[in-house]
Amino acid sequence: MEVPYTVKPRPDTGLYNAKIGVWLFLASEVMLFGALFSSYILLRMGASSWYVGSEALNVPIGTFNTMVLIVSSVTVVMAWASLRMDDLKKYKMYMGITILLGLVFLVVKILFEYLPKIDHGHVPSEHNFYAIYFVLTGLHALHVIGGLVLNAYLWGPGTKMWETEPEQFTNRIEIAGLYWHFVDIVWIFLFPTIYLL
């Protein structure tokens, strides 16, 4: 049985099914992160004392990771564009760079942020600031890991689909790119909120 609208848009929505699906999923993600950002605001407004993010956290490391994610959003778009131009070799290169940048983000986060903080006793139980910092950035890091697993699959075994269903495969990369961009956008809001204010 053939699954309909994997390539052609549905007449009623004007979009192929996976795109509707991923936007519904991202809408639920907005609610999840939105609730946590609201919690951050409420905790901060209600606290008698609060840490200044730029004094408590490592701004240069946060800035570096911000640049890493911005560049990775460019490379994932280039990967998608390469497939649209029938260039699988370039796709592999750009998607490979995207995966590497995601790994760099995680390694820097763990080695230069989480571990030194834990060593210095800055754990969630110390203050609500560190609690919300670890929850927000930790949940974001889990999303990065999820994106890495997806991208690694599409870079490796998932590429087989290109030989049989090139258009559907290109659409899959677009969906993966939309998810990756969402993860990056969360960081774009998270960085100034937690690190600078």
């Binding site: 778009v77 939309l178 100034p192």
Partner: peptide, 24 residues
């Protein structure tokens, strides 16, 4: 919204962030 449109929105936000960070 396609990846093109989402990418544009993301880069616009990034411009605002980098400019705002510069001011900060």
């Amino acid at each position: 919204m396609s990846l093109k449109a989402f990418h544009l929105a993301f880069i616009s936000l990034s411009v605002v962030l980098t400019f705002g960070f510069g001011i900060w």
